[in-house]
Design a protein around this nucleic acid. Structure first.
Lengths: 338, 338
DNA sequence: CCTGGCACTCTGCGCGTGCGAGTGCCAGCA
DNA sequence: TGCTGGCACTCGCACGCGCAGAGTGCCAGG
């Protein structure tokens, strides 16, 4: 176990390194923080911290920088979440209140997060699978062509074209629409398959094919995991990554374009509370030198999706976590209102 | 007027520079192209081209690189559009055919363009203002709350929540839905205001407030220019920009995040035919060292939106133009089918 | 267990040099 | 008049060198 002072030294190293982006030496440390001991003592502590793997030196006889393990300890034990100031909170609320629809909410959230954290922001659209159905609408576009529109409680709208095996009359369509809604409106997506199972039986034999087709399209839409979308913003902040970044930025941009990767990343995070993944804790190779701070957000007490930021491992964790948490909270409020 | 050979020299310079990314000298030119003259002659030609402002030397006694004016001449007079090969065309078609809905079409198009051109791809969603209405749906969510869903012929769906001034019965709602659709279905957006003008008069006095509210929300949705969305992809290709690019890439990323800028840019382009904007021809400062190749696409003969790529001025214009044109063509087909 | 001192190591930077690519110009030739 | 070969000149760039500065590890003393 590390002594109290050594933890303080680690904290000081992380803070200074995050601020200056340069390896920090023993002398500078004692000057900028009142540790009450001399540089020589700090050097001993640093040697110990290095032995334990919390810090490292990029080159012999340069200062130390924190390792992923060091940041981990810092986040878990040494730093809290820095709350947003009251004016900041008001600004967040004002900005988000101006949104007109779901797309706009998500777009504004991305912008806001990117600006607050000066990092890359990622916001997942409210997930279909955890939402409830508000309404299912069926529109007849042609005798054997139906458009299926699914509206969720989070305001998301999905539509699908359905080619029917046989012409389908207006009356039957209205019938199906009514029965469908009376069964699934207000229910969770996961319950829908069970609820509509026996629906075809209520129809005339010649309509059953069409009903089955419509229903299977609906179920398809519900489970279609790859329809989980997300919005990204603030990529220009990547240019503040480091001095060497031609090589650093490339894989990150590539990873960000692979929405699958990001969705997986967000999916792995805890459903409640904040998740911080640091450097090599992230499985995807291109993101090995980044950290991801994510949190669930939702209209009720329950998370319907996640949002977060991607930045260099050398980031201001307390500030970033504060911003992410605050934004998630207000987005949840907005969604609950709409 | 420049002699034929001088134009050939310019063409050769552009081609070589695009290929090697390095200033090209007189000797290398004669070696790689059979111009039938000696380096000395080429030097004279180059001096002339430089006087005219078509090429420049980055430093005294280095090779020459084309100026924006040089690229302009190259694009207008010296190079055609390089058509895609048959296998490439098949690949494009196959890839786009797999799309399930409009979002997917756009997403795939972006991916495809970015891969084909190895540059940043920008695809505008089919514009509302030039489309026609396929269907307007009204859903009663609460006694005084209506959801308005607008479906366009390009498959785009817009929804808006409407808070009514007074409760609105199911019957009135059905009435409004029917009247509305009979008037506007299949009509162009621009005609809609005129067509629904006198609609409130057909309703009982107590419903008119609500009808008016719904209609104005509809009109709002139609004109809402800022709802013009676009999707961007292939930003990782920016890292191939140049060696110096920390400074170059930053403003470009920022400009790309400002969708307003991009929309303006696309909006300024010709409606039909391909538009190439080179370097300083682009008003926005951050994009001064880029070129934009854009073209309209649409389901009928008519363009409903634009797509294009953003890349360094030093790009393979014939190839890029070929890819952009081909993709636009196939996207148009896909939209027409759906 | 902390401290001051000391010798050591390594990176980054400024400077001077040489090389090579490329140019402009000129005189000669078709 | 236009093309060619030759020649002197100009830079940019890569390389090597040496120096200063920051930081370390270790040791002996309090």
């Amino acid at each position: 176990m590390l002594s109290e002072r050594r933890l303080q030294v680690l904290r000081a190293i992380v803070q200074d390194y995050v601020g200056t982006e340069e390896p920090v030496g023993s002398k500078a440390l004692t000057e900028r923080h009142s540790l009450g001991v001399s540089p020589a003592t700090v050097r001993n502590d640093m040697a110990a911290l290095e032995d334990e793997g919390y810090i490292a030196q990029p080159h012999t006889s340069a200062g130390r920088i924190p390792t992923d393990k060091g940041y981990r300890l810092f986040v878990d034990k040494l730093a809290g979440v820095k709350p947003m100031s009251a004016p900041e909170r008001r600004a967040i609320q004002n900005f988000l209140d101006g949104a007109v629809d779901l797309d706009d909410v998500v777009a504004r959230t991305v912008r806001l997060l990117a600006q607050l954290t000066r990092q890359v922001a990622v916001v997942q659209y409210p997930s279909l699978t955890r939402s409830t159905v508000r309404h299912v609408e069926l529109l007849s576009l042609a005798p054997a062509r139906v458009m299926l529109v699914l509206i969720t409680d989070t305001g998301r709208v999905e539509q699908r074209m359905v080619d029917c095996p046989a012409p389908f009359g207006e009356a039957s369509l209205a019938d199906l629409r009514a029965r469908l809604n009376s069964r699934v409106a207000g229910r969770r997506f996961t319950d829908v398959p069970r609820l509509v199972e026996d629906l075809p039986e209520a129809f005339e034999i010649e309509d059953r094919g069409t009903v089955t087709t419509v229903l299977s399209t609906l179920l398809e839409t519900l489970v279609e995991e790859n329809e989980e979308r997300l919005m990204i913003g603030g990529t220009a902040n990547l240019t503040r990554f480091g001095h060497d970044f031609p090589l650093t930025i490339r894989p990150v941009l590539e990873a960000l374009e692979e929405q699958v990767v990001l969705l997986k990343l967000l999916g792995e995070a805890k459903d409640s509370g904040m998740t911080v993944r640091i450097g090599h804790e992230i499985a995807h190779e291109g993101l090995n030198s980044t950290s991801v701070v994510s949190v669930g957000y939702g209209s009720g007490g329950e998370a319907v999706a996640k949002l977060g930021v991607v930045g260099p491992t050398r980031m201001d964790y307390p500030g970033t976590m504060g911003a992410v948490r605050a934004v998630a909270r207000y987005v949840g409020q907005i969604l609950a209102e709409s």
